[in-house]
Design a protein around this nucleic acid. Structure first.
Lengths: 342, 342
DNA sequence: CTGAAAGCGCTTACAG
DNA sequence: CTGAAAGCGCTTACAG
């Protein structure tokens, strides 16, 4: 929309205060080179005229930026909204204004969002990359001297900071826990094997089996979208297997919820007929019944770290690309009975 | 961060293409006054030089804006994340870029966010106002010719568009449903009576009683924060009442979840010992066990409407302030048994 | 159909 | 301690 009214400008303030525009500019920003009396005069004029600082114009002139682009998959997804909270709160502390975009996991949308953000002169970008996106995308931005921080999902070949969790460790502690509970036949449900996080969790899952002298039954591995529907789909496939496993490790909590809802619908007791461990520790995990035993992805903290890494770059850090890997933690709740000993 | 490298500018493109900067500018934006051959030359040069349009500079010059400020209470709250999705998706269709802020219901934070957004030259603002905030805040922005749309929470005295739901109707259909199920003693749990939405829901609740020839027992009304903790707090108070009501209408689903979790913890059967109706229809309502019967607040649609109202203003509409009130709908699920007939 | 000039609202050297 | 001048990257009348 075009602005109709001409708004109060720094020049107006300067004239009102009887100083030059340059002096007003310095006074406004609290430069020590301006006499206190002058400064007060300028501030008073600002007040009186209802002046609003035009940060955009200021940034243009000083080739600066106070905005940060934030690109995630989806908002209506507890994992990402938690991540967003962590990032947003931390950036806020640094006085950064965030521009938000969601990809729905489409590389094309992601490309469009990145362009828009560049056109809006963001100072940096925090990106949870769409699967199948190219590291070229990121490197092209970096070559423009705009820092990028990857969060939760890494991108092979991208030469920038990354913060995520130790998926291998996460898969391992989940499997170890189930094995310790006495389970010997454990399914691995949901997610896509092409995702690096899936591969990590599976690897940890396998190595826990190995360490316990067990072999993994890969016919108990089913892939699906990481959604509740995916969980519903995958439990139906699993239930055709005979004999049934006594436990399942789900790629994430959302899948676990789908799995358990469908189990209940079919007259099974989730957590008992099949013990369930999830991943992420989204808020729902604590309110579902049974409360879900899960691996915490430290989501908010991950977001906070991402923001801090970006801030360091914005302050000029030229260090080599940093990688921060958070330690997952098992959150024991109620969805894991030991196997039936009938 | 200061940009170190000088980036490719429109003048560079123009020189490379052998035209003037003005021509390049027009070609870039597809002006019909530019010959196709010239246009193609310019576009080719853009490509070759890796030119990125500086929309910020363009907006400054043309006194335009392509950003919209969006202020809500909190992100980690299913109701608001749904609302955000609705708003964001719709604004995206209009090519608007959104700047996000959260108030945590603090008027002071809200004030700060609004200032920041004005400094960033947002074209308009969508606001879910913090309780206790002043209509002056909004009117001051409007007087700068920046349109504001209020969403979900209205602000007495603010002369701008508003979209919300019919809380009276919502409270009414909830109570009617419970009454039809045979309940005669119904509690009203959670929320704060100073919120206009609370008052509306209570009013509808009361009028449904009246219409059925029942009197409302105000000793069964308990206020609390609209959080899960609030629900836990309020059910404990309710359980001290004797005789216990057979049903409860909760101010929102989050409270309903707190109420039911606590009931289960205390050995009661939520939905049976006390029938429960919630409000909002957040995603959790469908996955909680029992699945929660609730009043849908059409959250995403509300967001979409807010975006459309704002867009109309950005396109120059000078119509009187619009008010859009959405019709709530009862979503019947499993949390309402009829009263025990022992 | 294209170019020269002015200007959006600010900051940054440079003088004094 | 303060001011005059140039310029960030773009668009907009105005000529021609």
């Amino acid at each position: 929309m075009k602005q109709k009214k001409r708004h109060v400008t720094l020049l107006d303030v300067a004239e009102h205060a009887g100083v030059s525009r340059a002096t007003a500019s310095l006074a406004l920003r609290g430069s020590p080179n301006i006499a206190k009396a002058t400064r007060d005069k300028v501030l008073a004029s600002m007040q009186e005229l209802g002046y609003v600082y035009d940060r955009i114009a200021a940034n243009l002139r000083s080739r600066d930026s106070t905005t940060v682009g934030l690109i995630i998959m989806e908002l209506a997804n507890p994992f990402y909204s938690e991540l967003l909270v962590g990032i947003h709160q931390e950036l806020d502390k640094f006085g950064k204004t965030v521009i938000l975009g969601t990809t729905f996991d489409s590389p094309a949308i992601q490309e469009r969002l990145l362009s828009t953000m560049l056109e809006h002169r963001v100072g940096g970008i925090i990106l949870s990359a769409a699967p199948g996106s190219d590291s070229e995308t990121v490197n092209r931005i970096l070559s423009r001297d705009i820092p990028v921080v990857l969060v939760n999902r890494t991108l092979r070949g991208a030469e920038c900071d990354y913060v995520g969790i130790d998926n291998v460790k996460g898969g391992q502690i989940a499997a170890e826990y189930l094995i310790k509970k006495g389970h010997r036949s454990i399914a691995f449900l949901g997610g896509y094997s092409k995702l690096s996080s899936w591969q990590g969790r599976k690897q940890g899952f396998d190595s826990a089996h190995l360490a316990a002298g067990l072999t993994v039954d890969n016919s108990l591995v089913f892939e699906s979208p990481a959604t509740r529907e995916g969980g519903i789909e995958v439990i139906q496939k699993l239930l055709k297997v005979s004999p049934l496993p006594t436990a399942a490790f789900c790629y994430n909590d959302t899948i676990a919820i789908g799995v358990m809802m469908k189990m209940r619908e079919l007259g099974l007791v989730p957590g008992k007929d099949i013990a369930i461990v999830g991943f992420d520790d989204i808020p729902e995990a604590a309110i579902f019944s049974p409360k879900i035993t899960t691996v915490s992805a430290c989501t908010r903290m991950m977001g906070a770290y991402a923001a801090r890494l970006l801030q360091a770059r914005l302050e000029g850090s030229e260090a080599d690309p940093q990688t921060v890997i958070l330690e997952p933690e098992l959150v024991v709740r109620q969805s894991c009975s030991p196997p039936d000993e009938t």
